[in-house]
Design a protein around this nucleic acid. Sequence first.
RNA 1: GCGCCCGUAGCUCAGCUGGAUAGAGCGGCGGAUUUCUAAUCCGCGGGUCGGGGGUUCGAAUCCCUCCGGGCGUGCCA
Length: 596
Amino acid sequence: MDAIAIRIAAALAPHLGLEPEEVAGLLEVPREAGRGDYAVPCFSLARRLRRAPAQIAAEAAAAASAAIAPGGLVRAVQAVGPYLNLWLEPATFAEAVLSEVALHGRQYGESRRGAGQRVVIDYSSPNIAKRFHIGHLRSTVIGAALVRLHRAQGYEVIGVNHLGDWGTQFGHLIAAWERWGEEERLAGDDPIGYLQELYVRHNRAAAEDPAYAERARAAFKRLEDGDPSARALWSRFRELSLREFARIYELLGVEFEQIAGESFYEDKIPHALELCAARGVSEWSEGALIIDFARHGHPGLPPMLLRRSDGATLYATRDLAAAIYRFETYDPAKILYVIGAPQKLHLEQLFTALRLLGFPAERCAHVAFGHVQGMSTREGTAILLDEVLGRAIRLAEERIRAGEVRVPAEQIERTARAVGVGAVVFADLRHRHLKDIAFDWDRIVRFEGETGPYLQYAHARLCSIAEQVAAVDPEAAAALVEFGREPLAPAQVGALLGAGRPIEPQLLVEPETFAVLRLVGAYPRTLERAAAELEPSVLAQYLLELAGAFSGFYHAHHVKNAEPAQRRARLALVHAVRHVLAHGLTLLGIEPLERM
RNA sequence: GCGCCCGUAGCUCAGCUGGAUAGAGCGGCGGAUUUCUAAUCCGCGGGUCGGGGGUUCGAAUCCCUCCGGGCGUGCCA
């Protein structure tokens, strides 16, 4: 919980006989005006304090009201039934919030909660030799956001791209190549498209004629057994794919600490299987090696296959070897699997297997998301990510050129890219992601309303205000030059804020201003919650609220044309909002723009 | 068959550790610019929170059940 919440809670905590941290956890913003700036519902305290909620609220309100001092943060406390409603002194609140921003500077919002702990995040993980389609976007952007959110909480994060670069699918590919492969086409300008075509063709053939399926299985077995020609082909296909993916990752601003596909764990599989055998977890059944969970106290869980009857390993085997490797190599506090909801059973099996083997499986979590419907590579119905991003960027560029062009000519391309990508990324991150979604062109490349470009626009506007204020009032800009940048010492903050100082908080008291400050003050706890709940959408929704509140302020009040003292105070607000917006957007993987 | 997930305004979604009169955006209609970016803002209309039952002082939120949709369920990943 952040300093602001604790400061607010501190006014009530002693009268409730609780610690400020506990009260801060209960703090909420009443839905309706007239019920205070904040409220503490007392229901959950009833049992602990052994009194009725309404009585708790009434007594605490009476005691807290009596203790209110002029100039303090809390201006009034009122019990309404079981609620403890409180009104803040806007000037004191403004000072409190802006002090926090000044104190932490560009690190405002971050914490060291996770310091000394490691987190492994397994995300993106596309299959090689297939095109990157819109269904792969989710794991990539959610995973990348979780990586950044955890770093902002002080964790050491190892982002792993667990490429699908092994398995029977390569049997299909190799078999297809050996049957139909044309060297010229692989050397052409769309090698991945060609590989995918081969794969699809072989898969279809296998569906009708079991002989093809058999050849695919045999080809993978050869690959796994180290057959040189199979290996050479595989390695070539893999290189071509990585080159293709690199382009997309660059566009999305995604970097991995480790690109370790399933093949990386090939030589780690024996260790995993030995462990299973040694602990008595695995057994042979119908010629295959399995873990029969029913015999280990998990009656409802279907068995997990570790080795097929022909001896080849499976996805599950490699995932198990990967998890063991990660536990033994990194000793992580968390391992997150950012993988679609359809794989829930598979991960449940994996986690249960790890527990049976004696690993702390409770540290593993499946960050699941609904799949994009109708995206099948095999059926050729997938919409390519390239296509989506390309279209979004093109539309963004048209938009920039259509109106009054504020972007310098040499920046238009870059800006269009940021806006287009921002729209697509935000469209994916803005909601909780368990529900399946139907792909919709119009929705994903929208620039108005609750979108990425809306946030970028708010940010650009903030930059523009700051720039223009600096032009008309260089003294104001100079006075605030340290605010929101490097973290400041308390004495420096004191010199910056207060009556007669550069930033006078008593000038930041209008309702629209208060609404903005309340959100700025809530940023640290929002980041904490987004990371703890593994939900980038928590941050996305918050940023929409903040940008909305700022737009309300913008239309109600002027910065540039205000009186000098007022202008400085509002400029500080502008800096603070700009910082939070830029920081939050960056965490989501969206570039904050200065002009658009 | 069994298991899991989802169902809130015409559409897309917030709200879900139970709590005050269920909120946004899009779309529709009507407005706002002699001043900092109209990719903005303000207003209006729009809901038996899938149906039913239960627990509770109180249910969109928890439990049961039914309906609808999706996914998974031993040799794919």
